[in-house]
Write a protein that binds this DNA or RNA. Structure first.
Length: 703
DNA sequence: TTTAACAAATTTTTT
DNA sequence: ATTTGTTAAA
């Protein structure tokens, strides 16, 4: 492949450079080579963005930059893992020195190192969102899950905008907001008492830290020579502020993103960050990657047509040199079952046609998780292997959460959510009555539940019977021998875990509490798998817990479990299985497949519409639609060779059936009328139905 | 007071 | 269909 004109870099550059530059196009090379200031790389879908980032890391190193001085920040652990892997392929072991992690794990790192400046012990806990839900229910005295979710959501968005409870209180416009701000304050106090942080704090607190402590800020600014941010369009206000403080006035950073793929507005991401970048950094170099290496022209044309209805932040048009390809297919289905059958039929027919198509070449993409179910059934019936991504994560499983709660509690006795879970698994004669009493006592004395347990005045508050079992539990948790082994026992972590499970009687507990023998066995298997995974993590070979690479030789169980809240899948089990993928559109971002079925593309489903969103102001409605449109764009651009888009003529909504309308995005794809025809088999079926009906009409005597 | 059995409600997207 | 809240039994 010939190098682009004017940029032939052979002379005057370090050895190894030519290998690295091989195969990059002009704009990609520009993006890689611009290192002396801030740059924004607008990377269209499939334009080789990960390649640019990894090549840039390699380039910086080859220019003599210390690998430790480079940070690459992503949003998901998966993206971080892939980036580390691909960097390793370019620079070898040096990749381990580079900080390649998610925003959240970077936050963890900052807080573990410097959290004491904010009154946070090193052993703080990270709360998952259902821990948070539980705390808010307790603080707000409500059991209405839906309502509390709303509070949780509002508090989270305040935090994402960089507001704390006093800001919220000051700015509150209604009585409701004031009440919520007060609740938020109570929530903050609780977290402080529990020595715990939530997901949003993992960004907000490090930001606070860098704002307040100049010494720490200096430390990091001099440590980091270049920061690369992946999926920049997904950053929220606090993440942007954090980035600015990390890079300092030198502003050596590379933001890589695509405004057309911004689909996380609902969790605080804002395109303002993209808009503001050229204003905040006038010397910003903007580079566009417009050549797509993934999809055929037919697919890309549909994608461009859809996104054309959105206002443009930066003008850019993707093009492909992979040829026209198969036309995009649109399919109208009678109902969900029919749609699932059609998707299965499509997979089967493509597989039986000339080329050898693997199962892993296919993906079925949908808007919401619950849509997966019907496709699972159909695939199972057809004996097609599949995996569901973006469903329930391994660490969400009850049995895994049980174990994590135990370990968390050992690490941080003040972790009340962990306490509440551990104290009742297995059942030890302690019920909500006793726990409510303990909780009330703890709250009134501003203690965590564990502290309250051994407080001297506790016996007055709780009947002796319950207190006895509680304190026995407390002693077991703090069993010195166990703790010592958990904290240092790195090499025999596996053996320790098994011993501990036995002492706990966890296996018996699982089987006693589940009358379905098989299910209990599956759970137990999960537990064992989890233990193996933990043990491996503690082994100290190469460790990348929560996306942070550390070279420390051995880690304790406690260290490992503290980052589990950030993980969703057991990393390392990413074995390439030859199976069909079922995925939400959100979880599909960054991935690609030769053949994609985009299903349930209905008005109300793909531009998603909830009853609540109806009475939102006009402008907000429009922004919502734009984000849904980007979601459609993401879906279309996942496909390499063929794309089928289907919609439902009748669909279930809640309990009853309603008539379905094709999504407005289907029309926006501006396909040739000829391609929007129904599948030939579909026609045949319709004909048959007509025939049958006519026959029955004839058979029946008129009236 | 605890636990197990039973009834009812509920679905956007996720670090 | 799964999961949460309520009620009844132990």
């Amino acid at each position: 492949m010939s190098l682009p004109c004017g940029l032939a870099p052979e002379d005057g550059l370090p050895v190894g450079f030519q290998i690295m530059s091989a195969g990059l196009n002009v704009s990609q090379l520009q993006a890689v080579h611009f290192t002396q200031g801030p740059s924004l790389v607008l990377a269209g879908a499939g334009s080789g963005k990960t390649r640019v980032i990894t090549q840039k890391i390699a380039h910086l190193i080859s220019q003599g930059m210390a690998p430790q001085g480079i940070a690459a920040i992503t949003f998901t652990n998966k993206a971080a893992a892939e980036m580390r892997e691909r960097t390793k392929q370019l620079v070898g072991k040096l990749a381990q020195e580079t900080l390649i992690c998610t925003f959240h794990s970077l936050g963890v790192r900052l807080l573990r190192d410097h959290g004491d400046a904010l009154g946070l012990k090193e052993q703080f806990s990270i709360l998952g969102s259902d821990d948070v839900l539980g705390i808010l229910k307790d603080c707000g005295g409500s059991t209405d899950t839906a309502a509390v979710r709303q509070w949780q959501w509002q508090i989270s968005s305040w935090k994402n905008d960089g507001l704390d409870s006093s800001d919220a209180l000051r700015m509150a416009k209604s009585e409701d907001e004031r009440a919520l701000a007060v609740l938020m304050q109570r929530y903050e106090e609780r977290l402080a008492a529990y020595q715990s942080v939530d997901f949003d704090d993992l960004i907000g607190l490090p930001l606070k830290l860098l704002q307040r402590r100049e010494d720490i800020r200096q430390l990091w600014q001099s440590k980091l020579q270049h920061v690369l941010v992946d999926e920049y369009q997904d950053t929220n206000a606090t993440q942007y502020e954090l980035l600015k403080l990390l890079v300092g006035s030198k502003a050596h950073f590379t933001a890589v993103g695509d405004d057309d793929q911004s689909i996380y507005g609902w969790r605080g991401a804002t395109l303002d960050n993209l808009r503001k970048l050229p204003l905040d950094f006038p010397q910003l170099r903007v580079i566009k990657l417009e050549q797509n290496y993934r999809s055929t022209s037919a697919i890309l044309r549909a994608a461009n047509a859809v996104i054309a209805s959105n206002p443009k932040l930066f003008e850019k048009t993707l093009f492909s040199e992979l040829g026209e390809g198969e036309p995009v297919r649109v399919l109208a289905c009678d109902n969900e079952e029919h749609e699932a059958d059609r998707a299965v039929a499509r997979i089967q027919s493509l597989r039986s046609s000339s080329q050898h198509r693997a199962m892993k070449d296919f993906a079925i993409l949908y808007r919401a998780n619950h849509q997966a179910r019907i496709f699972e059934q159909a695939l199972r019936k057809a004996q097609i292997p599949y995996k569901v991504s973006g469903g329930q994560s391994f660490f969400e499983r009850a049995e895994i959460k049980d174990l994590c709660a135990w370990l968390r509690l050992m690490a941080n006795n003040n972790d009340d959510p962990a306490f509440l879970r551990a104290v009742t698994t297995p059942k030890r004669g302690i019920g909500h009555q006793t726990l409510a009493q303990l909780g009330a006592f703890a709250a009134s004395h501003r203690l965590s539940m564990f502290e309250a347990l051994f407080s001297h005045s506790i016996s007055a508050a709780i009947p002796a019977r319950g207190l006895g079992s509680l304190q026995e539990f407390g002693r077991f948790v703090n069993d010195t021998e166990f703790n010592a082994r958990a904290i240092k026992g790195a090499e025999d972590a596996g053996a320790f875990l098994h011993q501990w499970l036995k002492d706990l009687g966890y296996e018996r507990y699982l089987f006693d509490n589940e009358d379905n023998e098989k299910l209990a066995a599956a759970r137990w298997k999960n537990v064992l798998e989890f233990c193996d995974w933990m043990a491996k993590r503690c082994g100290g070979i190469t460790d990348d817990t929560a996306g942070i690479t550390t070279t420390s030789p051995a880690k304790s169980l406690i260290d490992v479990v503290q980052s589990v809240a950030l993980l969703s899948t057991l990393s390392g089990d990413e074995k390439e299985e030859d199976v069909v993928t079922l995925s939400t559109l959100h979880a599909a971002k960054g991935l690609e497949w030769p053949h994609v079925c985009l299903v349930g593309v209905n008005e109300g489903l793909l531009p998603f519409r909830s009853d609540a969103s109806d009475d939102a102001p006009q402008e907000a409605q429009e922004l919502r639609i734009q984000e849904e449109r980007r979601l459609m764009y993401v879906g279309i651009t996942r496909a390499q060779r063929t794309l089928m888009v289907s919609w439902l003529k009748r669909r279930k909504k809640g309990r009853e059936f309603i008539n379905g309308k094709p999504s407005r995005f289907i029309e926006e794809m501006a396909l040739d009328q000829a391609t929007v025809r129904e599948d030939p088999r579909e026609k045949l079926k319709a004909l048959r139905a007509q025939f049958a009906q006519r026959a029955s009409e004839e058979a029946l005597p008129p009236n």
